[in-house]
Design a protein around this nucleic acid. Structure first.
Length: 408
DNA sequence: CATCCACTGGAAGATATGGCGA
DNA sequence: TCGCCATATCTTCCAGTGGATG
């Protein structure tokens, strides 16, 4: 008689290493928490809330600390009858204007089925609808706008919201805005009037250093992993890698989680340093795939042009040659090619995603231009292209050339 | 020292798409 | 239906760049 048995696992609770996990204690952010609590204090005291602006790279604890403190604040404020607090959290990730943020806010406040559509209304109308939703809540409303930098320079809402009461749009409700930004430049490019109010209280989260990351990892590993599931040095290695490239706890935790998965799938009971190396490559590949998903058809064609040049070892490759290859691919795909300027835009997008790299060439009377090359493993790029372009035979040829040139 | 090359990238306008209200 | 509204993507135009060249 056979039976099912649970695999002996590296993990006890893998969730403790995932993005959504909320730890009971926040490590290594005591100073920030103290300043943050001070900025939130007026709410407890029954005064108008401060507007708070947080900035720092991804994975340095801005969102985690915010969630942690606001949960605590909501619980603690229960004790006071005269404080009526609501928290409205919104990730502005995919929202590219104040208009869209306002619509998303209204929609989170409304019942399902009664939502606004993404376009069609004048901006003023949307703001008015937002005010009436906020007014209906009453009391103090904290609006948390995570990744607020994605609205770029269309920041009217950030001007409006903090002034809503002063301008008579709200009577029953006081609004405090907590803006969270990954982009350090965003603060500086804000309209000066916005900066004055929104950045009333500012809080910068510096990148984590390696020892701090090691502590964070240790405390999560204690919950997530079996005792002895981890070789000496693995935590430190994850911490060191993450500290060097980003200072991000997110990256450190991802490395550990993926290393654990690599160990499990290799039937190893213990995570070793080699598994961390695997994890790192996986993370790289994931980054490319995610960047790739954002690309339009032409963005992909431009990238494919560079991939194709790479397969023939004709890199680094100047814009002109990329463009020629791109036009050839467009003809294959029976798509009208874009003009050169637009392809330039795609190239600079790809550069922003760090999928490609550009070096400046200044050759005097023969002009200045960029030379492009892939900035990710060739393999990951080819795989992430998938067959979205219906250019299967072209992909086959690229792979073949790459094999001949010993790229794969 | 002016000129030139071969771009880069900002600005503004065009086009297409999807949705509102009358 | 029509006139508006917002957005994404693309096009057109063009000023700016800076080392080599004569």
């Amino acid at each position: 008689m056979t039976s099912f048995e649970r695999n002996r696992s590296t993990f006890v609770n893998k969730d403790a290493l995932s993005e959504s996990y909320q730890p009971h204690q926040i490590e290594e952010r005591d100073e920030e928490i103290a300043v943050y609590m001070d900025a939130l204090q007026p709410i407890v005291d029954g005064w108008e809330p401060n507007n708070i602006f947080l900035y720092g790279n991804t994975g340095v604890g801005k969102t985690a600390v915010t969630e942690y403190l606001l949960r605590m604040l909501e619980a603690d404020v229960e004790a006071y009858d005269d404080v009526d607090l609501s928290v409205l959290t919104l990730n502005c990730n995919t929202l590219t204007s104040s208009y869209q943020v306002a619509i998303a806010m209204v929609n989170t406040l409304r019942e399902p089925g009664d939502e606004l559509s993404a376009t069609g209304y004048p901006q003023r109308t949307v703001f008015t609808k937002l005010y009436s939703e906020l007014e209906a809540l009453g009391g103090t409303v904290l609006v948390v706008l995570d990744e607020i930098d994605s609205i770029g320079d269309r920041d009217e809402l950030l001007y409006e919201l903090p002034r809503a009461r002063a301008n008579g749009y709200l009577k029953q409700t006081s609004v405090g805005v907590i803006g969270i930004s990954n982009d350090l430049q965003f603060r500086d490019q804000l309209d000066p009037r916005v900066k004055d109010t929104l950045c009333e209280r500012e809080l910068q989260f510096p990148p984590y250093e390696a020892p701090e990351l090691a502590n964070i990892l240790a405390s999560r590993a204690a919950v997530a992993l079996n005792d002895g599931a981890c070789d000496e040095g693995v935590l430190n290695l994850c911490a060191a890698i993450a500290a060097r490239d980003s200072g991000s706890a997110r990256q450190a935790l991802d490395l550990l989680r993926l290393a654990g998965e690599a160990a499990e799938s290799g039937e190893d009971e213990v995570i070793k340093e080699s598994h961390v190396e695997d994890a790192r490559q996986k993370l790289d590949a994931k980054r490319v795939e995610e960047g790739m998903r954002e690309l339009t058809v032409h963005g992909k064609l431009v990238l494919l042009a560079i991939v194709s040049k790479t397969a023939s070892r004709q890199i680094p490759c100047r814009g002109r040659d990329v463009y020629d290859e791109y036009r050839r691919l467009c003809a294959k795909a029976k798509t009208d090619p874009l003009v050169r300027r637009s392809v330039n835009n795609h190239l600079s997008d790809l550069r922003m995603f760090s999928i490609i790299d550009a070096t400046e060439n200044r050759s005097g009377s023969r002009g200045n231009y960029y030379s492009y090359e892939l900035n990710v493993p060739f393999q990951s790029a080819v795989e992430a292209m998938g067959d979205a372009l219906a250019l299967g035979d072209e992909l086959v040829r690229i792979r073949k050339r790459a094999t001949q040139n010993k790229m794969l």
